[in-house]
Write a protein that binds this DNA or RNA. Structure first.
Lengths: 223, 223
DNA sequence: TGACTTTAGTCGCAGAAAGTGACTAATTCG
DNA sequence: CGAATTAGTCACTTTCTGCGACTAAAGTCA
């Protein structure tokens, strides 16, 4: 009855693993085995009866050696564009990796997003969609915290936001907004980073109460 | 070799057509032909070499008789959940339909989102994702305008936002925010709707210049 | 006709939030 | 010790939002 049980399915799950290195975003790539000199996102042929999430988790785990902390589907990609597999359709996942745990297995390399090698057109579209997703969900999901270690200084957090937003932020304003949102709680640890006054370490505080936020925002990004 | 060549491909494109009727959102459904008494989203088996967008456009066109004005992919759905077709994967599209042009062809019926008939689990998930997409992108894409006719009064626009946001808005604040965003321009037409002072008609003004909007918003929706 | 109702559209104030520069605090370097 | 460096806070100004009260232009009804 199911006449394709012997073949793998005709679609793949691809992962865009993103981390932040210093002052740039980076994406994890691996060399394609069969094709000519090319790089590829970590991907996986979808197994029957396996959820997309599980497939993406496995692909990420294979690349990093550990399970990712945060994942979100960024859509289905196909449209005849080429892909390392012969899959008709690829489901893309954005995976955020804290820099501290960003030690890939052999064969995987981080590339700055501004300086990516050629990818298959379909995977290139996925990377672009992933970056767009990061920026558009920055104020709706704890993205910045998933790119930082479990504890961090407020300066590190601010730098992360500046990287993701692509603009400088004022220190006092940043901290005031952070306080109002109840997003972090202080630990009793401090870190001395060479020069200057030591900084207190904070951790992410998942929000219980939601602010019924004021106003209407007509901040259209599209024309 | 391709032992299913007589069949259509193993994935479908499904459309969640949404309109706003008075004070509720509605989704367009059609009866399934083969299965027992059930309703279904308009869907289409994906043709080789056809983009998802084109497939979604065709499905929408078949249901409405005209091309949709705005569309956005809401993701890939599968995970073993049942679907009217035997497709392993379905790509979902959100399609917005202005109420004025919302006259479906025979066999298609609008259902209020609060009162949907049973759907296949996969399509039910798509509808939920579509509604979520509408609300989360309300300030990033001209969603409200795609649910209204080409010209509209500001009161109609405000009612649309109130419907989509699920809360009342203050008239003066709404209009002030609207002015600041340069989203609409007045026409020289007025509409007298029975009682009361006639209202000026406005049209959507696609934005050229983007405001570099102030501040950081930590308005996390998720915990 | 003229008071009353209904809807459209605007004004201005009070209070909240964001932009900003200057300040204090704690550490390392020389 | 003083200069340099980074962390953290304060206070003032500007901008934005909530909101009530106002004017404007139509219909309704006695």
């Amino acid at each position: 009855m199911r006449d394709r049980s012997s073949r793998t399915s005709s679609f793949s799950v691809d992962t865009v693993l993103v981390t932040a290195t210093g002052n740039e975003l980076a994406v994890l790539l691996t060399r394609t085995a069969n094709e000519r000199e090319r790089w590829s996102l970590p991907w996986r042929a979808q197994q029957a009866g396996e959820t997309f999430e599980l497939g993406a988790t496995r692909a990420a785990q294979e690349a990093l050696g550990e399970a990712p902390g945060w994942m979100e589907q960024i859509g289905a990609f196909g449209d005849g564009k080429r892909h390392p597999s012969d899959a008709e359709v690829s489901v893309g996942y954005l995976v955020l990796v804290p820099h501290e745990t960003a030690s890939p297995r052999a064969g995987y390399t981080w590339f700055h997003v501004a300086d990516l090698p050629p990818l298959s057109p379909r995977q290139r579209a996925m990377v672009d969609a992933a970056i767009k997703t990061i920026q558009s969900r920055l104020d709706q999901a704890p993205i910045a915290f998933r790119l930082l270690p479990a504890t961090f200084t407020l300066s590190e957090l601010q730098q992360m936001y500046e990287l993701l937003l692509g603009k400088r932020l004022h220190k006092a304003s940043f901290r005031r907004a952070l306080q109002a949102a109840w997003l972090v709680e202080p630990t009793d640890e401090w870190r001395s980073e060479g020069r200057g006054r030591p900084a207190q370490l904070f951790r992410y505080l998942p929000k219980k109460r939601r602010r019924p936020h004021r106003g209407i925002r007509f901040d259209f990004l599209y024309p």
